[in-house]
Design a binder for these strands. Structure first.
Lengths: 196, 196
DNA sequence: GTCAATACTTGTACTGCGTCCACTTTTATC
DNA sequence: GATAAAAGTGGACGCAGTACAAGTATTGAC
């Protein structure tokens, strides 16, 4: 029985540790709120040392925000858009597609925000690797001289998506959030001046 | 000689302490960068104790972001807009007007960002009291049922302004930034879809 | 199975932010 | 000048994050 070369015991344990840490963190956050749970608490609940926590997550925020192992490969498939598709249309597809991919996580985090005001303040769109990839992808599509236009289109799209997210009540269906997000994106794309 | 009841010695000393702290902080930040200057350093440079620093500023960030004493009164005058003016037009005037009011500060902070990456990450639009006032003002103008629309319009305007700010090179004239900001606002207001 | 290289875990110590609180000094009022 | 209010101070604390040295487990080669 030739052992599987790739996924050895080491890899499996690492994955297990990652998921355990995040699961315990979310459990504690849901119980007592993000701000009153320390990294020490999370590590203890996961039967690991504080040092080990920081081996897996660069910060306390990261345990909430970091993508799952392999998640990046999933969202990268979204970046396969027709070369002649207008930038705005691509962005709408990308943002909605990504939201669908992480719908479960989005719902969880949104519910945590109810008891944990600090979570609402996180500069999600700045730090998160998806948004880094998104910006890079936009840059790669941008012709020289159009950088300002591209940045504007991207930021408007992000603003529309964030508007829908910020007003979403996680008690209602996730599909309802998607509908709102699409509505915001369409309105923003069409122009918000001279409406009300 | 009835002493001036209002601006007594106490008030003047408070103002002086505030300005001294901020001046020393900015001086040190410019010298050594935001992240490598501690609150302790700032307080020492201002000949005050660390405790006193936190009497004046709620956080290290705040010494950069907080409005000057009396600044709020200035920006509040901007909120006097015709009742029938379209929301978008009001927002354009408000954002550009406020930018003009704090042009000096904006330039200073932008230049600090060159040596201090942490400053670029600050969630300005969330915390800053001007944006709180702005959101409240928008809310006060919003008819029941139009909350989503209003939030979207506001966030798109903020995205446009932030786009101009993020791409502004503070070596060039501030007027150039204003021109770019206006351009971004106009494009965003007209709609960014189907352009390229 | 032995063994050494490698990767992961842990404890410890440190810096810095932010909070709390008791205490002193300064300013305003009479 | 006595007194009360406001501002400044010093010390202790908890927690996030970093650095590093020492320990433990996994791996692959023999």
């Amino acid at each position: 029985m030739s052992g599987e070369r790739r996924s050895g015991l080491r890899e499996r344990k690492k994955l297990e540790a990652w998921y355990t840490l995040r699961a315990e963190a979310f459990r504690l956050f849901a119980e007592r709120g993000y701000e009153t749970v320390s990294v020490e608490d999370i590590a203890a609940a996961a039967n690991m040392s504080r040092s080990t926590f920081f081996n897996y997550f660069a910060s306390k925020d990261a345990v909430v925000l970091d993508p799952e192992p392999g998640e990046r490969d999933q969202w990268l498939t979204l970046f396969d858009r027709p070369a002649d598709e207008p930038l705005w249309d691509s962005l709408v597809e990308l943002l909605l597609g990504y939201a669908k991919q992480i719908s479960g996580h989005l719902t969880t985090v949104k519910q945590l925000e109810r008891h944990s005001p600090a979570l609402g303040e996180m500069a999600l769109a700045r730090t998160h690797p998806f948004y880094r990839d998104l910006r890079d992808w936009v840059d790669s599509r941008t012709k020289p001289g159009a950088e300002l236009e591209s940045a504007l289109v991207l930021n408007v799209a992000l603003a529309a998506a964030e508007t829908a997210y910020s007003r979403w009540e996680p008690t209602v269906d996730f599909a309802e959030f998607l509908r709102t997000a699409l509505e915001c994106l369409e309105r923003a794309g069409a122009g918000v001046a001279r409406r009300g």
